[in-house]
Design a protein around this nucleic acid. Structure first.
Lengths: 250, 250
DNA sequence: ACCATGTGATGACGACTGTCCTCACTTTAC
DNA sequence: GTAAAGTGAGGACAGTCGTCATCACATGGT
C-alpha cells in the first residue's frame, strides 16, 4: 500500500528520548587521562577517530541531523525535505544518516520527542519552582513558559503543524504528548477541586479539550505572526481553565 | 526552493466553493426540448458528447476526482497520493485532472472546502431549525451535528489531519475555517451575554480556543477509534462553553 | 611502517513522480 | 459522408527520490 519500503536494516536505535543525556561511556570526569587509552576497546564498537570515540562521533552526527531537520522541516516542510538535503544541511553524508535513523520519519519522530521533552521539562521546572504558592498562581508561570516556547517559530511549525498527517506512528506520538499535558492539567485540577466530580472518561475529554484550546490559540497566534501580546494569550487561556473548573459541578 | 514547479498553465478555475451548485448553463428546466439543439453553441465552449454538455462533463469529472481524493487522501494520506493513483481511482485520465486542478494540492483545497461547506451548512440548518428555543438549547443539537459528522472517518482524517502542514495556502484555508466557527460561537455568546465584556482581541482568542477545544476532543475521539459515546463528547464541550461564559466577567 | 578502520566525494541503480505527446477510436455537427 | 472535436490507452521526457557501491584519502592501533 505505502510506496515506502521498510526492509530489514542494520537496526538503528531510533527511539531515543531526549538529546540532553550526558555521554555515560567512559564518563570518568577528567580529560587528561589519555596514556592508557587502549582499555578494552575493539570489542566495544568502533575505535577512536579525530580524538573522539565512536559513540561520541555518532552522538554528534545524530545531533547535527536533528539540528538540520529542525531547520529544514520547519522552513521547507517535512514533505519537501529529502535525505540529500538533510545531509547537505548537516554537512554529513548519507551513510551517517542511515546509521542514525531509519528514514526521515524516524528523524522527525526523534526531533519531535526531543523538542517536546525540552519544553515539558521547562514547564515542569517553572511549575515546581513556585511550589510554595497556591495552585492558582503556580499554573500561570507554567502557561507563560509554554507560550514563550511557542514564540520559537520552528518549534511551533514542527511540533504543531508538520507532525500531523505524516503517518500513524507519529500520530501516536502526538496523541501521547497531548495526553501528558492533559494529565498535568488533571493534577492541577484535582489540587484545586479535591472533590472531583467527573469520571475517568469525562476527565480525559475535558482536560484534552483544554489542551486543545491552548494548542489552537497558540497555533492561531503563530499563523497570525504573533499579533496580540503573549500575556493576552496567557490570561485568556487561564480564564478558560478557571471557567472549566467553575463549571465542574454544573 | 520548492521542488514542485509552478509554471504557467491553461488556468484552471481552482477556487470553487461547494459542490452542490446547480449547472446554470442552459438551465431552462425541462429536458424534452431537443429538436433545435443547435442553439448558439460552438462559441460557448465545447460541444455535446455522450449526451452531456461540455460543462456537465467537466463537472462530473471534477466530482469524480473529488470522490477519488476523498478516498485516497484519507486512506493512503495526501503525501502518498499521486496524480496517477487519483486518475486510476476516478476512472479518468490525467488530461482531465489537469483540466480541473492545478495539482494535488488544489484538489485537496477544493475537497476541504467542499467538505467543510457541507458540514457547516448542516450545522447552521440544525441551529436555525431550533430558532424558537433559547440559545442554550439551540447550540446543543448544533454541537451534536458536528460530532455526528466527525464520525465519518474520512472527513475527520482529511479535514483535521491531512490538511495541516501541506502548504501555506491550505494553512490559510484552515485558519479561515476556524475563524468562521469562532465567529459562530461569538454570535451565540453575544446572544447569551448581551453585555459582552471582552475586546475584539480577547474575543477572537477566546472563541478560537473554544473551537480548538472542540476540535481537539474530536480529533482525540477519532484517533482513539471513537471510544466514548458521542453524547459524552457533546455534553463535555457544552460544559466547557458554559464555563467560559460564566468566567467572562472574572 | 603497516594495515584495518573511518571518512568524504561521487556516481549509479531502479522506482516513482508530474507532465506532455502521440495514436487509434468514438461521437458530434454540418 | 466528412471533418472536427472528444476520448482512452500508453509511452516518453526529465527530475527526484532512497539506497547502495566504489574509490581515494585520513587517522588509528600496534
Amino acid at each position: 500500500m505505502s510506496p515506502r519500503r521498510r526492509a530489514a536494516r542494520p537496526r538503528t536505535d531510533d527511539t531515543a528520548t531526549a538529546s540532553g543525556g550526558g555521554a555515560d561511556e567512559d564518563g570518568a570526569g577528567g580529560e587528561g587521562l589519555k596514556p592508557t587509552a587502549s582499555r578494552r576497546r575493539k570489542a566495544s564498537g568502533g575505535r577512536r577517530y579525530a580524538g573522539r570515540s565512536a559513540a561520541e562521533r555518532q552522538a554528534e552526527q545524530r545531533q547535527r541531523f536533528l539540528a538540520a531537520g529542525r531547520v529544514l522541516f520547519a522552513d521547507s516542510g517535512f514533505r519537501a525535505t529529502s535525505v540529500r538535503a538533510l545531509c547537505r544541511e548537516a554537512g554529513l553524508i548519507d551513510r551517517y544518516f542511515y546509521r542514525n535513523f531509519a528514514d526521515t520519519q524516524a528523524l522527525l519522530a526523534a526531533l519531535y520527542t526531543a523538542e517536546m521533552d525540552t519544553v515539558e521539562a521547562r514547564i515542569l521546572a517553572v511549575f515546581n519552582a513556585a511550589e510554595a504558592g497556591a495552585p492558582q498562581e503556580r499554573i500561570e508561570p507554567a502557561m507563560d513558559t509554554f507560550f514563550a516556547a511557542f514564540e520559537d517559530r520552528r518549534f511551533a511549525r514542527i511540533c504543531w503543524l508538520e507532525v500531523l498527517g505524516v503517518g500513524p506512528d507519529i500520530d501516536a506520538l502526538y496523541l501521547e504528548r497531548q495526553n501528558r499535558f492533559a494529565r498535568l492539567l488533571e493534577t492541577v485540577g484535582r489540587q484545586l477541586r479535591p472533590e472531583w466530580p467527573l469520571d475517568a472518561q469525562e476527565t480525559q475529554i475535558t482536560t484534552l479539550a483544554l489542551v486543545g484550546a491552548i494548542s489552537q490559540s497558540a497555533l492561531h497566534w503563530y499563523l497570525t505572526d504573533y499579533a496580540a501580546p503573549r500575556r493576552v494569550l496567557v490570561s485568556t487561556n487561564l480564564r478558560l481553565i478557571r471557567g472549566a473548573l467553575a463549571a465542574l459541578e454544573g
